[in-house]
């Protein structure tokens, strides 16, 4: 009896999550896949016809936006690594007793709604706003200079909005490095810089890896930043999909684009994992 129970326990544990994923992830994904191959319109209804044309149309009309999204996502991710690593490093090694306070401060802005946070950038970066206004008044910037409605604003917004998802995994990886390992490096004639390059950075890679996954994927498929901070020629694929769903109500094309994006991201993730030697990196993470 108890052996039966013991044998069933793992399944019992996975059951709620499994059902949840089945209902809210698998089913919609299948429905979406089916939709992407349907043809028709909202008024007359959609019929499944193996209509691959939506994929062809989507890629023909929106390949620019797809490439742009990947480029923006990549740029934002790189910026996040550059900005986030020192922050994670500082909190992990210099945070002392107040680590949790610093982590909380890092997360504090993110208690505000994503959209509001992005809109607040609109306010900060306004052409004559509190940042650019004084600089223009001092003649440090030309009067027609602007940040908003440029790719820089979109990439900056993406980098900002997903920053905690980069910093937190890096922090976790750095925090679990045994300080004695750093002392050992120091003892074995490595100076601070060498210790960082040879020991700290390699040991933080699982965190960076996780951070890249957790930021690149949502940044690439984001549409809020482009719609709030972007201008012309900054539209990302997320905006196109959203438009296809809600405005044009061309569900097959929207679904086809969603699937294309998903496939591209999955391929990217696998290539990335392969290149980094995930197993090795994850093994270290599992320590």
């Amino acid at each position: 009896m108890s052996r039966v129970r013991a044998a069933l326990t793992p399944y019992a544990l996975i059951f709620p999550g499994g059902v949840w994923l089945a209902i809210f992830f698998v089913v919609p994904t299948v429905v979406m896949l089916s939709l992407s191959l349907q043809s028709g319109n909202v008024a007359d209804g959609f019929v499944f016809t193996w209509n691959w044309q939506s994929y062809v149309d989507g890629l023909t009309n929106y390949h620019d936006q797809i490439i742009r999204s990947l480029a923006y996502g990549l740029a934002a991710t790189l910026i996040q690594i550059v900005i986030g690593f020192p922050v994670a490093y500082w909190i992990a090694f210099k945070g002392g007793r107040h680590k949790s306070v610093y982590l909380f401060l890092l997360l504090l802005p993110f208690l505000v709604s994503f959209v509001l946070r992005t809109i607040s950038w609109q306010f900060l970066l306004s052409d004559n706003g509190m940042l650019l206004g004084p600089l223009k008044d001092l003649g440090l910037l030309p009067h027609d200079f602007r940040v908003l409605a440029t790719p820089y604003a979109v990439i900056g917004g993406l980098a900002y909005n997903f920053l905690p998802f980069m910093v937190l995994p890096m922090y976790v990886a750095l925090e679990r490095i045994d300080p004695r390992v750093l002392e050992a490096a120091n003892d074995l004639y490595a100076n601070k810089f060498q210790t960082f390059i040879r020991v700290v950075f390699p040991l933080s890679l699982p965190g960076v890896f996780a951070g890249v996954l957790m930021t690149f994927v949502p940044a690439t498929s984001d549409y809020v930043n482009a719609s709030v901070l972007g201008g012309t020629n900054t539209t990302m694929i997320g905006n196109v999909i959203q438009n296809q769903y809600l405005v044009t109500q061309d569900y097959p094309t929207a679904s086809a684009l969603s699937f294309t994006l998903m496939a591209l991201l999955l391929i990217g993730i696998f290539a990335y994992a392969k290149a980094l030697g995930t197993e090795d990196v994850l093994e270290v993470a599992a320590r």
Binding site: P28, V31, Y245
Partner: peptide, 11 residues
């Protein structure tokens, strides 16, 4: 989007 997708779209 999902509501529509899940219910199927008939018109």
């Amino acid at each position: 989007g999902l509501a529509l997708a899940a219910c199927g779209v008939k018109g």
